[in-house]
Write a protein that binds this DNA or RNA. Structure first.
Lengths: 212, 212
DNA sequence: TAGATTGTTAATCGATTAACAATC
DNA sequence: TAGATTGTTAATCGATTAACAATC
């Protein structure tokens, strides 16, 4: 469908475009040129045009880009026009934070189930959802067909669950475990989020970034 | 100090090396060759050697790298051998999750203060620390000299606080606001964490990654 | 029409990979 | 010493930037 393959660098920039276009739209912008957008985002106009043209021409010569139209296109490319059903494994602080985040700030996803293995949490409510015991995971998946799983559980548990989850139809993992999740199914997507790594790079820049 | 400037790609890989070396060490590895490490990490041996040589030779010809020695070097490069004092702004779920994360999984940092503006939270304890009212921020900073600030507050609050925080000596921001924090002080480091962007790229790969 | 700005091709730059001499 | 593996230079690859013709 898309022209050949899109490079990872481009894919990583798409959500940022989406965000900025959303803000522009909220501020009443109707059109914007690549030059102006570049300035706001700290990119070059060339790069922006190259990026958008990976997916076909969204602009109009002499005019620029229609803000809401372009935003909608990028949303569609990212798959944010769907409501992908997700389950959350692990209802600790991080899990709860992520759950709230999804509800308020992430278009394109619906959290449909929350699981934890600790008995004292089971039955508790997070937003609209009741925390379920992990033992009910299989039944739940067979009935409700979640597509994505958010892993906010310890590494060992994650390693144990992933194969089963794939069998149950999960095709995307959002992994907050601080270990890299390696999955060899070619049609299963994994996004590893390493908060510790992120903080470590900040530490690097804090300590050595300004020595020169 | 460091040889010229280190490219961003290299810096982003350092924490991952650090993590893998930690696991190797835990598994009893004493030495490892670039070839073997490459295999485990899904990189090339060439890249690994290039990366390490940005900082000087840590290996030994014919032998490879000493796991614990190399790990210590990388930790030092990242500044994880220090105990950088941090404050947390915003004690919602995400803030609490991050606070726990730092205590348990992030070497090199100590959380010394937690602030929130909502009166019902003030006084509550998170781990060893009591949540303080945001109005006490200035006094606290003058007394305790935190170096980094973790922003788990709404965008507007973040925009309002950053200048003051810089004046108070903050030199690193770990920003969880879903807006890009732009700071023009050249000696202030910023790491923007965009969970929504991360999820959106997962969505892209889920939806279009496997069409070809 | 004239001006603006895209879409796209060509040039540059930087990062990754390959190769190999140095050396433990 | 012979074998292994680094450190480092050279070659390749990919991504970014520049340029400009197409066109709204």
């Amino acid at each position: 469908m898309s022209k050949n393959t899109i490079s990872n660098s481009v894919i990583r920039r798409l959500p940022r475009y989406y965000r900025f276009l959303g803000e522009l739209q909220a501020n009443g912008y109707v059109r914007i040129s690549s030059r102006e957008l570049a300035e706001k985002m700290g990119l070059t106009a060339s790069q922006i045009r190259q990026d958008f043209n990976c997916f076909g021409g969204f602009g109009q010569q002499g005019y620029g880009y229609n803000v809401s139209g372009l935003r909608a296109e990028i949303g569609r490319i990212l798959g944010l026009d769907k409501a992908t059903p997700m389950i959350l494994l692990g209802a600790g602080n991080l899990g709860r934070a992520i759950a709230a985040h999804i509800d308020f700030e992430c278009k394109g996803f619906v959290l449909i189930g929350i699981f934890d293995s600790s008995p004292e949490m089971v039955g508790e409510k997070i937003g609209e959802l009741e925390i379920l015991d992990i033992s009910g995971l299989e039944d739940f998946c067979r009935k409700n067909h979640p597509v994505g799983a958010i892993l906010c559980i310890p590494k060992e548990a994650a390693a144990k669950e992933t194969d089963k989850l794939i069998d149950l139809g999960i095709r995307a993992f959002w992994n907050f475990t601080h270990y890299d999740l390696k999955i060899d199914h070619k049609d299963v997507a994994v996004e590893n989020v390493h908060l510790g790594d992120s903080l470590a790079t900040l530490s690097y820049r804090l300590n050595s970034g300004n020595e020169e």
